[in-house]
Design a binder for these strands. Structure first.
Lengths: 169, 169
DNA sequence: ATGAACTTGAGAATCATTATCAAAATAATT
DNA sequence: AATTATTTTGATAATGATTCTCAAGTTCAT
């Protein structure tokens, strides 16, 4: 069950790995968490790593379910929690919506969300990061994490129109 | 029921108002929302305005319940939603915790939270604000709102100790 | 292979929030 | 002040995401 490519090959990755090499990588991560290697954890991890954007627990549940593995929500949540406890994934919860997760090895970035169409654009800004450090230090804190979410209206004519026609609600 | 000071007088406010003047102010706000003036809404509004920090819906429910007014959760949530729809209060939801609300007339500020003891420190930083505007503009967005939450460990010896003894979880 | 320890998943439980709807309150009109 | 159309309330049920429970299944060191 390891010679069938269950997921498309993302050629954008920095390194090309054989399926076996990838599996070793995944196992290593699981063991770093002090957990046993199971099929479910392998599958979750594969999907989280392969994706290049944001997932909900639901997304991951469905993606794993499409493979041969049966899985429960509890398992997804449990493992995602373990991953984010060790900062392998970033968990962002906002606005009463389901939590979004993403693999955190890639460059850190923040989000700019269009409040009309829901489009999410990522950005990074070193100056902002630096200022955050300074603020925390000036208040006697050691900064360990941050969430910066910008909200606005994107440039699409549809969203601009909606925005201008309902400026105060 | 208007001559008993139900809440401590916050002398830091920009203007001193008689109870009657305050009531007129509150009524005006409720009418601006296109809603009828009710005792419950007056009470909620009074508490939200009087407080200078963050409230949960639960806090507000309890505070109103301490007055003579009986109130239900639904009413609290409904009215807070109406207030935040017109930007009279700011609603912040994060990390699966209950939403926090605050009156938004005051200076804008962001939050720095100690992940050990839960202490919240407010700050404002014009430079960061300016950079946010620039980022949004450069991506073609009109910025309408943002959430910046910093997380760290505060300077108390207890929190520092906890932090250093468990550096990787 | 064996067994101790860890995992799983189905479903129950929880928690914040929202919806429902009959009864009560408001405000505009006599 | 009484009437009435409309809005609001609050008790309770419903929802939706997440977490808990625990018997049954799996992993892995021996």
């Amino acid at each position: 069950m390891s010679d069938i490519p269950l997921l498309p090959n993302h050629q954008s990755g920095p390194k090309k790995l054989t399926p076996e090499q990838e599996n070793q990588q995944l196992k290593k991560i699981i063991r770093e968490l002090g957990l046993k290697v199971t099929q479910q954890r392998m599958d979750i991890l594969r999907i989280v790593k392969a994706g290049d954007r944001h997932f909900t627990a639901q997304d991951i549940f469905e993606a794993v379910s499409e493979t041969n593995t049966s899985i429960g929500f509890a398992t997804v949540y449990r493992f995602l929690k373990a991953l984010s406890a060790k900062a392998f994934v970033t968990e962002v919860r906002m606005g009463g919506m389901p939590a979004r997760y993403e693999w955190s090895s890639q460059e850190h970035h923040d989000h700019l969300t269009c409040t009309v169409c829901g489009k999410v654009v990522e950005f990074e800004n070193d100056e902002i990061e630096k200022l955050q450090e300074e603020v925390a230090k000036s208040l006697g804190f050691v900064l360990t994490d941050h969430i910066l979410e910008l909200f606005g209206v994107c440039s699409s004519s549809h969203c601009q129109k909606v925005y201008k026609s309902a400026p105060e609600s």
